[in-house]
């Protein structure tokens, strides 16, 4: 069973996405901000992290950089989620160390495709 860490500050989005992922059979842990996200990444060792980029405190870019700097967490895949489909966001996300990128609002099918592609299998 693949474990997904969802780092998202908006409560509704967090609830929604975690419920829908759970329904699809994933184990979901959720964090409210970058700091908590890093903590949970270390303690929960998720297979994949869905990282909202605009977060209070340590933002998604910074959190990803720190994740990547930690050799123990190197195995986790990261998908960046940004609110605005801005040109360059994808590149920035990849630069910061993300494996893929998707825009919010989440289109479930598209996101699931990206998740399964990264994890190499359905949950």
């Amino acid at each position: 069973m693949a474990k997904i860490l969802l780092v998202e500050d908006n409560e509704l989005n967090r609830d929604m996405l975690s419920r829908r992922l759970t329904r699809r059979g994933y184990t979901v842990v959720a964090a409210e901000d970058g700091e908590q996200g890093l903590e949970l990444a270390r303690s929960e060792r998720p297979d994949l992290i869905l990282m909202d980029m605009s977060l209070p405190g340590i933002d998604g870019w910074e959190a990803t950089r720190r994740l990547r700097a930690d050799p123990e967490l190197a195995g986790a895949r990261v998908i960046a989620l940004t609110a605005h489909a801005m040109a360059g966001d994808r590149e920035r996300a990849i630069e910061a160390g993300c494996d893929d990128y998707d825009t919010k609002p989440v289109e479930m099918e598209r996101l699931l495709l990206k998740i399964t592609t990264l994890l190499g299998a359905t949950p």
Binding site: L12, N13, M16, R20, R23, A83, K104, P105, M108
Partner: peptide
């Protein structure tokens, strides 16, 4: 737009969840 989008995303998302359920 930003403020509207957030609850709207919730509406869209929850309606999808409900549909699935």
């Amino acid at each position: 737009s930003h403020e509207l989008r957030t609850p709207l995303n919730a509406i869209i998302g929850y309606s999808e969840i409900l549909e699935e359920e």
